[in-house]
Design a protein around this nucleic acid. Structure first.
Length: 581
RNA sequence: GCCAACGUAGCUCAGCUGGUAGAGCAGCGCAUUCGUAAUGCGCAGGUCGUGGGUUCGAUCCCCACCGUUGGCUCCA
């Protein structure tokens, strides 16, 4: 990634510069904290102000910032004692800062950064002086709870971008523009892939023919790969009786994400927020032997979860979605091999969709947890070993696991360098216990199986949204809803066009003839904007010679060739590009 | 859920301080038969998100609700 997108201390200093400017404009302002954002693009600062800011205020703040830059005021590091810091902050009336000060552990040095008459409790580091902040722009303002706690007061967070030069700032702004151009909500509408209907409800996705075609291709690929990898497929109901969810613990621990029950013959039933209890019922349907394990049971299971109204977002955060779910039931001896296998399989699946760069979190046992410590440790070791073996860089999130088991979360990096969390592989020591799962071992006794819950793509909705942005709507050939559009020059070539189309269709290519009476330029433009990978242009010359003129979405005109040559080329392209890493 | 902004035709948007709406694209019709990113002419299309209020009169002002967007928290 370019340096200009990765300059943390510069953005940090820009946040302070903005805070200094705001302090001058609003003398009574109470400061919280300001930082660069993790995506490498923005900085922000949280303020408690007497009035609401609006984008119209940005001009005045920026102007004040520019004046401070012109004066080239140095950032000075000032170390002081806790008592002194307390005095300074309470004199300044900075109550949030006082609380932040109390968070700094004893023994750690306490520093202020002074910039002219503005000073701020901060660990730094900063750039030398305000003159090192020549290029910046404020971008948005939003509410933000103090410490992210909705019971605490809401502060105003102002976001901006900053760079070491105007040119570098333009790189950042261009990246932001490019992200906006690729936004799956915009492309989803333009390419007629999906919609969300107010009359139906927020967070509920309608897959239009083109989107549904892509989904169907993804699902077909997904199923084929799962069968090859030794999975079996399950389908399970969308609702289940309250008792099931009582046993699973969902009604105790997950109720706020579940929809109200419906009454069926006097009994309450719940729409499923997860698939696991159903898979478990299938497991429990008969006595299981160690000889038949492991079970690898997968389901494209559609679940419904209540999400707060403010958080639903396009395809990325919805209220009904289809998980590419699977549960693996295995013996302790098989567990380590299964983990490795799942991880390897998961990465190959993601590579097939064009993702090359992965990172992971390994979340370990929290203080409050179920299951024997020994099992936790064994499982955590197996997860770490698998990550090492597959050479996936990971960070340990100590104590960050769910109460029921340790897990790996895999993030991918997309074409714009943004990270998205997709896959999750998690142990579950809770449900086997609650449902009293067992298998008969070679000693003839009952044993508790290991249960591993995993999703690779996450959910089809979310994954689709990420794919749209990753490819900017130009899906690879194998996934394109329409692969080839045949463009007769005039209606005199229509019959030939139909013949060409028929032949390609019989070879399972997704082909459409544009029979409208537009000029060829207009037809090409339409096919280009609709991201059709290939166009066949047919005029009198092609009819005469029995040829076709091929045009590629990306490369443009490729000249005349025989239909056989085209079909040969396309059939070679019509496979998922495998990169087995 | 909370804070803020927004909601006008299928889409993208215009509509000065209140006098019941307009463009481009898309759609439909007709003409055109054209060589690698927009052929011309015409037609049709809107309870101005919903409900209430203020007013002689509301797309415009006020209130409530619904939805969207940017965030916070959370998450597949």
């Amino acid at each position: 990634m370019e340096d200009s997108l990765d300059n943390d201390s510069l953005r940090h200093s820009a946040a302070h510069l903005m805070a200094a400017a705001v302090s001058r404009l609003f003398p009574g302002v109470k400061l919280d904290i300001g930082q660069p954002t993790e995506d490498g693009l923005y900085f922000y600062y949280d303020f408690d102000l007497p009035r609401r800011l609006a984008p119209e205020d940005f001009g005045a703040i920026e102007k004040e910032m520019r004046q401070l830059v012109k004066r080239a005021i140095p950032f000075e590091r000032v170390e002081c004692s806790r008592a002194e810091a307390q005095t300074r902050l309470s004199q300044a009336g900075q109550t949030y800062k006082l609380e932040r000060l109390a968070d700094i552990p004893d023994g750690q040095s306490i520093t202020f950064y002074r910039c002219g008459d503005f000073e701020d409790l901060c660990r730094g580091p900063h750039v030398g002086s305000t003159a090192d902040l020549p290029a910046f722009k404020l971008t948005s303002v939003a509410g933000s709870y103090y410490r992210g706690d909705e019971r605490k007061p809401m502060l105003q967070r102002v976001y901006g971008v900053a760079a070491e030069s105007d040119a570098a700032l333009k790189v950042i702004l261009d990246r932001i523009d490019e992200a906006a151009r690729r936004d799956h909500r915009k492309l989803g509408k333009e390419l007629d892939l999906y919609s969300i209907e107010e009359t139906v409800g927020p967070g509920l996705i309608h897959w239009h023919p083109r989107g549904a075609r892509i989904r169907s291709l993804i699902e077909d690929f997904w199923r084929r790969e799962h069968f090859r990898a030794g999975y079996e497929l399950l389908y399970s109901p969308h609702i289940g009786r309250a008792g099931l969810w009582q046993t699973s613990g969902h009604l105790d621990f997950y109720a706020e994400n579940m929809y109200a029950p419906m009454d069926i013959d006097g009994y309450p039933y719940y729409v499923k927020p997860m698939n696991c209890p159903f898979h478990i019922q299938i497991y429990k349907g008969q006595k299981r032997s160690y000889r038949e394990l492991p079970f690898r049971w997968a389901e494209l299971g559609t679940v419904y979860r209540y999400e707060k109204s403010g958080v639903v977002h396009g395809l990325l955060r919805v209220r009904g979605f289809t998980q590419d779910d699977a549960h693996i039931f295995c013996t302790p001896e098989q567990m380590e091999g299964e983990i490795r296998r799942v991880l390897r399989f998961g990465l190959s699946m993601l590579r097939a969709f064009g993702f090359e760069s992965f990172s992971a979190y390994l979340s370990t046992r929290p203080a409050k947890a179920v299951g024997e410590v020994e099992r936790w440790e064994q499982a955590t070791r197996a997860l770490a070993a698998a990550l090492d073996q597959e050479q996936v860089a990971y960070r340990r999130d100590e104590g960050g696991g769910a109460f029921y088991g340790p897990k790996i979360d895999i993030k991918i990096r997309d074409a714009l360098g943004r990270e998205w969390q997709l896959s999750t592989i998690q142990f579950d020591f809770n449900l086997p216990e609650r449902f009293d799962l067992s298998y008969i071992g070679d000693d003839g006794k009952e044993h508790r199986p290991y249960m591993i819950h995993r999703a690779l793509l996450g959910s089809l909705e979310r994954f689709f949204g990420i794919l749209i942005e990753h490819y900017a709507g130009s899906f690879p050939f194998w996934m394109a809803p329409e692969q080839v559009r045949v463009l007769p020059l005039t209606e005199h070539q229509l019959e030939y066009a139909e013949q060409v189309c028929d032949r390609m269709r019989r070879a399972d290519l997704r082909v459409v003839v544009d029979a409208r009476s537009d000029k060829i330029g207009a037809k090409i433009r339409r096919a280009q904007t609709e991201r059709v990978p290939y166009m066949l242009i047919l005029g009198p010359k092609e009819v005469e010679a029995g040829m076709v003129a091929l045009r590629a979405r990306a490369e443009g005109d490729l000249g005349a060739m025989t239909l056989d040559a085209v079909m040969d080329r396309l059939s070679r392209e019509n496979v998922v590009v495998r990169n087995e890493g």
